[in-house]
Amino acid sequence: MDEDVIAGHLQELRRGTVVLACLTTLARPHYGYALLETLADAGFAVDGNTLYPLLRRLEKQGLLTSEWNTDEARPRKFYLVSEDGAAVLDRLRTEWRSLDTAIGALDGGTQR
């Protein structure tokens, strides 16, 4: 099998889960770089050029709030899930579980 084909499909699959991963992680405040590290440590390797525009989009949609912390030498913008974001997260988690169950049903619950 062509590794480029597989890599492309894996990238598409991961792209669809980044919002879910971000909203889940941002139940507690994180600044951008710490969020990148937390996601990477959990197995979600996300590029900064992908994450920062996503954070801005989620904030614009009202799913995140942000606040600048200027207490340290380097100011950092911390993000946190809003009330609307928590509601969206609940819906996304429910859908994720439903899709996982459906995939499991399609393959009879067996892994290859």
Rank of each mutant, 00 (worst) to 15 (best):
M1T: 15
D2K: 04
E3N: 09
V5Q: 11
I6Y: 11
A7D: 07
A7I: 05
G8V: 02
H9R: 13
L10M: 12
Q11P: 03
E12F: 09
L13Y: 14
R14Q: 13
T17L: 12
C22S: 07
L23I: 01
T24V: 10
T24R: 09
T24P: 00
T24H: 08
T24A: 10
T25F: 02
T25Q: 08
A27Q: 15
R28Y: 09
Y31P: 00
Y33D: 15
A34Q: 10
L36T: 06
L36E: 05
D41R: 09
V46M: 02
G48K: 05
N49T: 15
L51N: 02
P53A: 04
L54Y: 04
L54C: 02
R56A: 15
L58D: 00
L58Y: 00
E59A: 11
E59Q: 12
K60L: 14
K60G: 14
K60D: 15
G62I: 08
L63R: 04
E67S: 12
W68L: 14
T70L: 07
A73N: 08
P75K: 00
R76H: 12
K77V: 02
L80A: 08
E83S: 09
D84M: 12
L89Y: 09
R91C: 09
L92R: 06
R93F: 07
R93V: 14
T94W: 06
L99T: 04
L99M: 09
D100L: 10
A102D: 10
I103V: 12
I103Q: 03
G104E: 12
A105D: 12
G108L: 01
G109F: 05
T110N: 13
T110D: 15
Q111N: 13
R112V: 15
R112M: 11
